[in-house]
Every structure is written in C-alpha cells, then in structure tokens.
Design a protein around this nucleic acid. Structure first.
Ligand code: FES
Ligand code: FES
Lengths: 143, 143
DNA sequence: TAGTACGATACTAATTTAGTATCATTTACA
DNA sequence: TGTAAATGATACTAAATTAGTATCGTACTA
C-alpha cells in the first residue's frame, strides 16, 4: 500500500527541478539527465502536467517546460489526484455499492476518519513546502 | 488505493460467520454457500487463518473450522498484516533507502502521522466490534 | 475402506502500475 | 526553406500485484 506512486513521485521531482531553475525553460532531456529518470517516462509525465495546466510548454527548438503557477499554488494533493485519482480507501466489507450497513458501519466510519486524516495532513503540502525543505537541507550540509 | 484487499475482506466475513454460529464447526463448503464466495478462494483463506492460529481446523468427515480465539481477541489489524503485510505507506520522494533527507523530510513526517492515524483508528477494531454492529443492524431492522 | 474434510503448494488469470515507442506538429535558425 | 530540436497525442509492451483455481496428499469418521 503506497501513498504515492512513481508517477507522482517523479512529477514532484521534475517540478522541483523546474522550480529551482527560476523560470528557465527546461527540456525533458535535461530533466532526464539531471534526475536520472527515464526520458520516455518523464516525457509522459510532463505531457500530463502540461495538459493539467501545472506547467506550460514551449514547442520546437529551444522549447521545454516552465511552471504555469507559483510553487505555493502547486499542491501535492493535486498531483496525487492527477496521477492516482481521488483518495478513496473505502472498501465496504459486505458490498461496495448499496450496503445496508453503511449508515452504522464502524469500519466505514473509521475509514472516513483515515481518509480525512490523509487529506488534512497532505492538504498544506505544496511544491514550495518541499522546496524549502531542500534549501534547509543544503543549509544543514554546509554547516 | 484500497485499505482492505479482498483477502482481508473475505477473512472478516468468514470469521464473522463462524463466530456467529456459537462454536459449531463450519466447513468451507458451508461458508462458501452462505457467503456466496468462491470455494477455492475461501479455502485458501481459511488455510492461512488456520496456519496463523486464528482458527483451528478439524480434518476428515465432520471436520471444519472454529475460532481459536474469542472474537474480542481477533484484531482487524492482524488480518491486514496477514493478508496484506505491514502497513507501510512510506514512499521517499528521493530514494527509498538511505535518503539524506529523511531526518527533516516534511513528507516523511506527514506520512508517519498518517500511518499512525491508520493504526490508531483500526487498532481497537476486533471481530467482536464488527459482530456487535451486525447485531445492532438486525435490531434496527426488526423495529 | 470410502468418502469427506483440511494441508501444502503450484499454477493461471485479471488488474494495476510502470515504462516504451511512434508519428504528428511546432519552432528556431543556418 | 529545410532540418534538427522540441513537445502533443496515443498506442503499445512489460512488470508487479492481486485475485482466483487446481491438484495431490493426509487425517478422520462411519
Ligand atoms: S459493511 Fe458495508 S459499509 Fe461497512
Ligand atoms: S525525500 Fe527522502 S525521506 Fe523525504
């Protein structure tokens, strides 16, 4: 049971890299080289991010990608939604659809609480959050 | 992202059925018939439950399964562990093993919190919990 | 000793996740 | 103006996980 799949993971890394280059246009080739992630796979991920409006793309020679939104507006939860779908843990023990139990089911209630907890923990996490952490890390290492 | 897989789900149903029959010895054939779950699949699940000591088995004619522990000692978390492994959501964004970030990583912290929340919600849930709920449901329906 | 039930284990099928390949289109610039 | 560099769309393959089946062996009861 993974909270983040590889798609999401790579998307975060790619976006981080792009964000740290202060508005430079970044090609998939560069990302792939720097992050050591398969070119084709990254390409697909970036295409999706572009379609979803998180980055915008410039075609042709000299082209590439830039963030379409400031880093503090790019939410981890959106990436999860894009690459993994909505967070739905709900497995009814009896019957996935109209379970007669659903109003009183203890498990259902627990799972709802867990879902909410996931969302409330992850909700504040943006690309900026994760970038700051990297800066902090760099700082620590230079002490 | 499912919290419970089908193995776990069926295990809960099978154990519930067995528990509700007050110590009678229940065969896989009966379970399969009553619960409308594939005989072979149930068989495998019961074999595992038996190996894990949650039920004990009686071989030969007249045989079958009984709970090896009282319903309030059979924990949902154990079933999850048995059929799905330990709950580990941890996906490090950079590198699954020795990530240099791990001490300060915000995401890691969040994920730890989520894991703890899952465990603390599910920890009190036993077979008895789920049985009581079913009784409650029956009660409601007869009003 | 026949029939019923579980034990162990290997196998197959379906689904989800991960990753690759191809052709089309846009753009820069020699 | 044409070629190389870049993304867009989309289809395809491969690996991993989950779901489900089959088979042969052993124990027990009547
Ligand atoms: S058993 Fe159906 S919602 Fe819990
Ligand atoms: S980035 Fe490695 S633990 Fe978070």
């Amino acid at each position: 049971m993974k909270l983040l799949t590889r798609n999401t993971d790579y998307a975060v890394r790619a976006l981080s890299y792009i964000a740290m280059e202060n508005g430079r246009t970044i090609t998939v080739a560069e990302l792939s080289e720097e992050l050591k992630i398969s070119w084709s796979f990254l390409r697909k991920i970036l295409q999706i991010l572009s379609r979803e409006g998180l980055v915008f793309s410039i075609k042709g020679k000299g082209g590439g990608f830039r963030l379409a939104q400031p880093a503090n507006r790019i939410f981890l939860l959106d990436l999860i939604r894009i690459f993994q779908g909505l967070i739905r843990l709900n497995a009814c023990i009896i019957n996935n659809t109209a379970c007669p139990n659903i109003r009183i089911c203890i498990l259902k209630k627990k799972i709802d609480i867990i879902e909410k907890s996931i969302i409330s923990e992850l909700h504040p996490v943006t690309l900026e959050t994760l970038l700051n952490q990297q800066n902090e890390l760099l700082h620590l290492q230079t002490i």
